[in-house]
Amino acid sequence: MRRTVLIALAILFAAIVIVLPVAAIFTRAFAEGLSVWAAAVTEPETVAAIRLTILTALIVLPVNIVFGLCAAWAIARYRFPGRRALLVLIEVPFAISPIVAGLCFLLIYGAYGPVGAALQPYGIQLMFNLIGIVLVSLFVTCPFVVREVLPVLSVTGEDEERAALTLGANGWQIFRFVTFPNITWALVYGAILATARAIGEFGAVSVVSGAIRGQTMTLPLQIELLYNDYNTTGAFAAATVLALLALLTLVLRGIISYFHPARGATA
């Protein structure tokens, strides 16, 4: 009895909070037929927004992987002053509201900020363009890879690396053959989560994008713009694309979990 109630509650909660809203996006978007949806999605401004969002995600992803690996490695393998501080610092983006983060970037890197002002004479502008969008996206996504990789790296421990060292492997060989295979899955998970977040980020990006139509509008910003223009069909059509991109990362994650080898447990 108690079990049934508990399960029913969980399902009900998921239905109200997750399933219904997501389903509503698709129903509303396709309400006027597939051709209307297709026309809305292929609207030049919307296409530009999709392109910008994907471009941003593609730039942010490798940077995240490299930074996340380096930071996780440093924290797991070395004892240095400021190690704990670094650990806390990496989590700051989780705690700070994205819109506040966006404002901070504007304050520092904007035309009137210290860095922005210093670069202006050289014709380098950091805000209200792709650079700004990439910078804040990096800010909001940087904890993901570290948070996934660090626990695995800590658990696998140094013994295997020390063994490889005594067997004559150099630093690169140790990383390539011993450490990396142990953390691959964690790294992929972290990268997928970070990408999903980068694609969907609204608050921070809205501050630094400058909202130039067809140029610096990412997909989430474009959706809000369409909605505020009373272009409900366009907004929901664009929203389906964003939802699909997010679902795609989830499906990827599912596929990867399915193939995740549990060594020794299977064969």
Partner: peptide, 20 residues
């Protein structure tokens, strides 16, 4: 350096490479 000594070492935990 350790790698250049060519000493074989057996660790307490064995430290076998688990994915190999």
């Amino acid at each position: 350096p350790a790698g250049a000594r060519r000493f074989g070492m057996v660790f307490q935990s064995y430290a076998l490479f688990r994915h190999m």
